[in-house]
Design a protein around this nucleic acid. Structure first.
Lengths: 174, 174
DNA sequence: TAGTGCATGTAATGCGTTACATGATTTC
DNA sequence: GAAATCATGTAACGCATTACATGCACTA
């Protein structure tokens, strides 16, 4: 099982897709917390078919080759197991946080500017996520709930920066 | 400039360290958002010395070889430039969020359990961070501020999960 | 004297991204 | 008819982790 496997199974649980479809969907949804590339998707699609977790069917668009896959019962069970599993990788790399970590090497005012810059980063991210759509208040699907998480997280992050900024400025004055 | 470069320069801005020292420091501080390994550190140390950003000095402990590095003026300027730079990589991989994204494939109650599990993940992370230390309320250094961010973030995350859990349970009832 | 920590270093491994190649179809 | 989009696929590349190798020093 590679890192892209659950994405493929998860998407196909909804409805059949081609590799190209999946890449497009990933690029405007999971990529914010789980990226994927053709170099992962296509080989894995063939492997999963060989192993019987998915089934492919040729569905050309005119003379344009196209192969759509659907989940088998075995694949659905594999997805269920992964969903219920407990192993959970978290990888977080945040250069802005690293800068802040070393900000003591900077004059006070410039260090505070790093906080302001981070706040701005959250705000820009927020715009990107809001452009994707606004999840409904009631009965959101779980994929919409995750988008809501992204929005809430960035709002929280921007607010956190602002609060620290005010706190640190006040202390300087005192 | 590799990903470990700013870490080396940033640490040496404080005081001289050996490669071994730096790895140990990284492992209990930046690794939560910026990891580093010997395979990166040692080669980069020699490169940075060759380029004149740092200077090494042999400082053996008895017969145990040891080489400590300090920042040169050129290195300090390079650090300053990186700190003030705007390029900012963010990479976030969160399997728990991916699970939640595909949770529609699960019976309602099991899907909600994923939220509970995520909350638990935040709480465990919180314990790890609190074991490192509690940043002071007043006049924290910036590295302490980043630790505070980690604590605040996980508190927020746990609370978010709890709120969604309550909201989704109430909706089911309605 | 065996185990742990200090200390440096590299080779192998695994991974994902990037870039490229190919070709059909739709759109302006 | 040019450009964008659909569609599949792979090779090269870069990068970080893992594992291993070496050897000294301290401590139980």
């Amino acid at each position: 099982m590679s890192s892209i496997t659950p994405v493929i199974l998860g998407l196909l649980a909804h409805k059949p897709f081609s590799g190209y479809d999946m890449k497009a969907i990933v690029d405007r949804s999971t990529r914010f917390f789980w990226a994927g590339s053709y170099g992962q998707i296509y080989p894995e699609l063939r492997r999963l078919e060989r192993e019987g977790l998915i089934e492919g069917e040729d569905a050309p668009n005119g003379g344009r080759t196209r192969r759509v896959y659907r989940l088998t019962a075995v694949g659905r069970e594999a997805l269920r197991e992964w969903l219920l599993g407990s192993a959970t990788t978290i990888e977080y790399r945040d250069e802005s946080l690293l800068r802040l970590f070393f900000a003591d090497a900077l004059p006070r005012e410039q260090a505070l500017q790093l906080l302001a810059g981070r706040k701005h980063g959250h705000e820009r991210y927020l715009e990107v996520l809001r452009a994707i759509g606004t999840p409904p208040e009631t009965d959101p699907t779980f994929d919409q709930l995750v988008l809501q998480w992204g929005i809430d997280f960035n709002e929280w992050g921007a607010k956190w920066c602002e609060q620290q900024l005010q706190r640190l400025r006040k202390q300087k004055a005192a």
